[in-house]
Computed example of a mutant assay.
Amino acid sequence: MTKGDTLAIKKVSLEKGQTKPPARLSEATLLSAMEKPAAFLEEESADLVKTLGETGGIGTVATRADIIEKLLNTQLMEKRGKELVITKKGKQLLELVPSELQSPALTAQWEQKLDQIAKGKLNKTAFIAEMKQYATTIVSEIKQSKQSFKHDNVTGTPCPQCGKLLLELENKHGKRRVCQDPACGYKKNISKTTNARCPNCKKKMELWGEGEGQMFACVCGHREKMSTFQEKRKNNQHKKVSKREVNQYMKKQKESDFTNSALADALSKLKLDK
């Protein structure tokens, strides 16, 4: 085909479709993004991108996994299968904090200043004073802001210690209710994920309640008191035979097979004519 050629159009078709959003981050891809955050810089200078590449990104190999764990434990994001999803609490935090705290460019700028200190081009005391002033300014701006954080997980149950409404939290270990006042510190476990398997569908069951009223519950609908479950487990343990006991039994059977058996004794007494 060359420029100026004429082609006959035999068929034209219109296809409908929808664009797909980028896949959500998983723990593995988020770790990779923290190691190489330059792709998330918007209209930043080339030297900042270079700095992030040389210094190893956000955090260190030893701290990145811990950072993700803290984000999950504080309900700023949650896991849905293998995907990480930002929560309403996390979205509110992004709306409240200054924009520069949301960009890896700030990390690159601080790394550059640390490099200047190492080369003797910047005074360490001056850098520390600058950091203190920056932190003071940020905190002051947040305090003076008219925006306020609103809990989206408030329950109708008052705290038995201070009277404020409790918050319901959920993580990979289960559910619990805590006082919204950190100074109060009240908390109560509602349910927790266990390794106990449902007798019907074999999935892990949750343990609800406290004390003698504790009950196992499965997503398939199975319910069972903990006392009943423990009794069944106790009975099953009595029925179980160890591998060692099985081996000893088989060994005895092997030794006794056709050795001094009734049939062998009877045959030994027979006198057969030659």
Rank of each mutant, 00 (worst) to 15 (best):
Q75P: 00
Q116N: 11
M34Q: 02
H238I: 07
E54M: 06
K10G: 12
E42A: 11
S256H: 06
E206N: 14
K269I: 12
D257N: 07
V49F: 05
K119Y: 02
K10V: 01
F127E: 15
G213D: 05
K269P: 09
S242V: 05
T137Y: 00
T125F: 02
A126P: 10
H151K: 09
L263W: 03
A62I: 02
E206C: 05
I190F: 02
G90E: 00
K121Q: 13
R197S: 07
A126C: 09
S191D: 04
K203G: 11
K50I: 08
G17F: 14
L31G: 04
V154K: 13
Q214Y: 02
R244T: 10
H222F: 15
Q75A: 06
Y186A: 02
E15H: 15
T2Q: 12
G56Q: 10
L106P: 02
Q253T: 04
H151I: 03
N260K: 10
N247P: 00
T87W: 00
K113E: 15
M1L: 05
K121V: 04
N153W: 05
H222W: 15
E231T: 14
K188V: 10
P22W: 14
K20T: 12
P37Y: 03
A262E: 12
R244L: 08
K70Y: 03
I86D: 00
V49D: 08
N247V: 03
N123K: 12
T194H: 08
N195C: 00
L96H: 12
E130Y: 04
D181T: 12
Q237P: 02
N200H: 11
A135Q: 10
I117C: 02
K251S: 06
K70A: 12
Q161R: 09
W208P: 00
H173Q: 11
S191A: 05
T136N: 08
F258W: 07
C159N: 03
V139H: 05
H222N: 15
A23L: 12
E42C: 07
E224P: 11
K254S: 07
P37T: 01
T228P: 01
G213N: 07
Q253R: 09
Y134A: 04
L270W: 13
K271M: 04
G209E: 03
L101W: 07
C201L: 09
C220D: 13
L96M: 15
P98I: 08
E255R: 05
L48P: 06
E100W: 03
A266H: 10
L14P: 00
G221D: 11
V154D: 06
N235L: 14
Y249G: 01
A105F: 10
I86R: 00
A28Q: 07
N260I: 06
Y134H: 05
M215H: 01
K172Y: 04
V139N: 07
K16L: 13
G156M: 01
K243V: 09
N171Y: 05
K188H: 14
Q75T: 10
T55W: 03
Q230V: 13
P37Q: 01
K192C: 03
F40Y: 08
A196Q: 06
Q161N: 12
K143N: 07
V139S: 08
H222M: 14
V97P: 08
L263V: 10
Q109E: 13
T6G: 01
I138C: 04
I86T: 03
